[in-house]
Write a protein that binds this DNA or RNA. Structure first.
Lengths: 272, 272
DNA sequence: CGCTAGGTTGAATACGCTCAAAGATCGTGG
DNA sequence: CCACGATCTTTGAGCGTATTCAACCTAGCG
């Protein structure tokens, strides 16, 4: 797939979601933000329902999601698919593109997707000038690792009911960090088929499970607009055995950890 | 858990498995190997069946497995466990320790485990001197990402039979890279209970599945010594839809990718 | 207005689970 | 050296969660 690049203009003076996310866990210096904007120079818009990275492709670019959702998946011979993870605004698609230019899993969009595109070389430059950003990037990778680990636990050892509740909570939480949801509902541009493929269930069963969650007063789905409303977050967390802390909480560690992010100078004094 | 450190002595002049693994995908320069040995200064031995990292702990060390197996897992309220991934010789436990000192998932040993222990600060020094090693470390993280993604696919969309075959093939392959298995069999220090917890199955069912694999002449288990013999690797791969390439194969990319690992000077000329 | 994609429901089936009990294997201590 | 307990493996039987198949419904769009 050929992607047409245009220059990126951040809308109404807001920071791009990646910066929001990083700033959420570790307040950024002015110059770090400026430096991060270098990853946001070129953008592209990709239609809904497009496979824009295909297993086996050689692609040495990374993408930052600005708006919309994408997902990484694997197709099996019998036509089944398994969604591995979602890319929400602020997430980096192909974070290892520099060292693993061969795409191992396809990536597709669930909605119109706006991304910024950068060459991984930019990262190297960025990191050598701002080593703390390298660590923050590492934090982000670690967070994605945890998130995928949780997907393993969901699929391996949770019932359909708990699985579904758990996923909805995670999506809600991730959107909250970048500030694009309200008190208790969010816009989820996904079909039940995709949910089924995420949770390793059949479409029939995910439909029944969602119905059950609604009947029990735990969630509310507004069909047309694809809004999901979590009616009783505490109860959902309890049902799903949802542990929030795998997603953030580097914040309070600065004092307990001798070489924490806060101690590292944001600007390197290495001579180039 | 308190871990007692001793100095590390590599046995009979062999390279440590991490170096073997990195060298396998990208031949290392002499001085890079020397530098990597700095991560191997201190070692520790941990008994079989020990939980040595516990969810919630604050630990800012990383570990390199020298010998034996460990695994990362999550415990649920009903007593069930889900294994997320295995750490085999050459694998790094807690690769994100510097930026995520809070342990998100417990790690335990399946056998007597010898590890080398390093402070993540060492990594920073290492990477600033030898930037290519930073990329190789990144490659390793990307590989682990793929491996966990495959675990998601196994659990979500494969039958017990295919799942089991697939996992055995992956373990076999990973051991092969570090050169500790023979033509078609390997030593796997795991119980059926652990296999069940890895594959999201009950112990009864994993037992029956292994029996079926044996009956069909695909594998052979020597109970006492925990050796697993793959009798027909090609057929197993076909059954499991096993795709090897998510595990290695950076090798041949040097020509197609303009900023490949091979092009990057092994020694940085950055002034410290 | 009719087509298509997505959502809903019922019924039969199957894969994998739970419960239960018995066999192996190994380490330990008498 | 054997007996005992602990851990792991094996097997049977009944059950339940989730699947498959099939049909119908609904909303959006040309």
């Amino acid at each position: 797939m050929k992607i047409k690049l245009i220059s990126y203009q951040s809308p109404n003076d807001e920071f791009p979601p990646l910066i929001k996310k990083l700033n959420y866990i570790q307040p950024l210096a002015e110059e770090e933000i400026v430096a991060l904007m270098k990853l946001h120079e070129y953008s592209a818009v990709i239609d809904e329902g497009t496979v824009f990275l295909e297993q086996g492709d050689i692609r040495d670019r990374s993408f930052i999601v600005m708006e919309g959702w994408a997902y990484r998946y694997s197709s099996l011979e019998n036509g089944n698919q398994q969604v591995i993870n979602y890319y929400l605004p602020g997430d980096v698609i192909s974070p290892f593109a520099l060292v693993m230019p061969k795409v191992t899993y396809s990536v597709a969009t669930t909605s119109k997707l706006q991304v910024c595109v950068f060459e991984p070389d930019c990262l190297i430059k960025l990191f050598s000038e701002y080593p703390r950003l390298a660590l923050l990037y590492g934090w982000m990778l670690g967070r994605e690792d945890s998130s995928m680990a949780e997907q393993v636990v969901r699929l391996g050892r949770r019932s359909a009911f708990k699985r579904t509740a758990h996923l909805l909570l995670e999506l809600f939480h991730r959107l909250k960090v970048i500030g694009i949801n309200d008190e208790n509902f969010f816009h989820a541009p996904i079909t039940q088929q995709l949910l089924a493929d995420t949770l390793g269930l059949s479409i029939v069963h995910i439909n029944r499970t969602l119905k059950k969650l609604q009947k029990e007063g735990l969630i509310n789905l507004s069909k047309q607009k694809k809004e999901i409303c979590l009616l009783d977050i505490e109860k959902l967390k309890q049902i799903a055995e949802y542990r929030i802390y795998y997603l953030d909480e580097i914040k309070n560690l600065n004092t307990t950890n001798k070489s924490s992010l806060a101690d590292i100078p944001s600007r390197s004094n290495v001579m180039q």
